[in-house]
């Protein structure tokens, strides 16, 4: 599904290198967790995968199903099946959430040569998906993310994820801002999407999320590199001991 090879990326504006040779492979159907201290480059990695122009790739490659995506525009990557659930979803006043969802779904369908969705089908689909995530239709009438609480924003991200039906879901700290019940609802939503054709890259600081969404592999990103990989027990180890010994080992 995903192969990140010796990926180096820097901030376009000032040239500061953030990713310093990331290597990571995620198989079809795999749930990979990425952990790591603040500022280690987790969000940067997710942005680089999504194609944000603030970053420049200077070395290495990202292969998605065997094809390099580095030359693709963000919308082309999305249409190809890469979805990023943002750590901080932006508020866009004036764009009604429903209009946005429809534009996104139909753009992706169009890019894939599929027929656009008719309005009644669209509304039915959204209603069904929203219900599962405990999102009211009233909320979706409002401007995109505007005035949504932290938890509501995260739920809205997962709603988009389930509607857009991606192949690779990159979730950047989806658990932060969610209350205990919401964490359960959202995790159930994510688990329902798990399948042999869909992979997940779950960025988190907490073992708690990984109790609900049990990962196949866990990777530690530190100073722009993966310094340790393991199975779900690695997350437990970090929860108990912090990063010190893992970092010490790598040094």
């Amino acid at each position: 599904m995903l192969e990140i090879k010796n990926l180096h990326a820097r901030i376009a504006e000032d040239g500061t290198e953030i990713l310093k040779g990331v290597n990571l492979t995620v198989k079809d159907g795999e749930v990979a967790a990425i952990m790591g201290p603040n500022g280690s480059g987790k969000s940067t990695l997710s942005y680089v995968m999504a194609g944000k122009e603030d970053y420049e790739v200077t070395e290495g490659d990202i292969l998605f199903n065997g094809q390099s995506i580095l030359e693709l525009e963000p919308d082309e990557r999305a249409a190809a099946g890469i979805f990023l659930a943002f750590q901080y979803p932006v508020e866009i006043p004036g764009v009604p959430t429903m209009n946005f969802l429809k534009a996104a779904m139909n753009s992706q369908r169009k890019a894939r040569g599929e027929e656009e969705m008719k309005t009644p089908d669209f509304i039915k689909t959204v209603r069904g998906a929203a219900e599962k995530l405990g999102i009211s239709m009233d909320m979706l009438k409002r401007s995109l993310n505007t005035g949504f609480s932290g938890g509501e924003k995260k739920r809205a991200e997962i709603l988009q994820m389930s509607l857009l039906d991606p192949k690779l879901c990159v979730m950047d700290e989806t658990d932060s801002g969610l209350d205990i019940d919401a964490l359960k609802v959202v995790s159930e939503g994510v688990n329902a999407l798990r399948g042999p054709d869909r992979s997940f890259l779950v960025i988190t600081h907490y073992q708690r999320l990984l109790e609900h969404i049990v990962p196949d592999t866990v990777h530690v990103l530190y100073k722009g590199r993966i310094i340790k990989s393991g199975d779900k027990s690695l997350a437990l180890h970090l929860e108990e001991n912090g990063y010190a010994d893992v970092i010490g080992e790598a040094a």
């Binding site: 999504a50 194609g51 963000p74 919308d75 990557r77 999305a78 866009i92 946005f100 992706q108 988009q160």
Partner: peptide
Amino acid sequence: FYLRARGIPEREARALL
């Protein structure tokens, strides 16, 4: 970027904004 990351092409995303 947010709109484009959801698959909306640049021209259309600009127009929406």
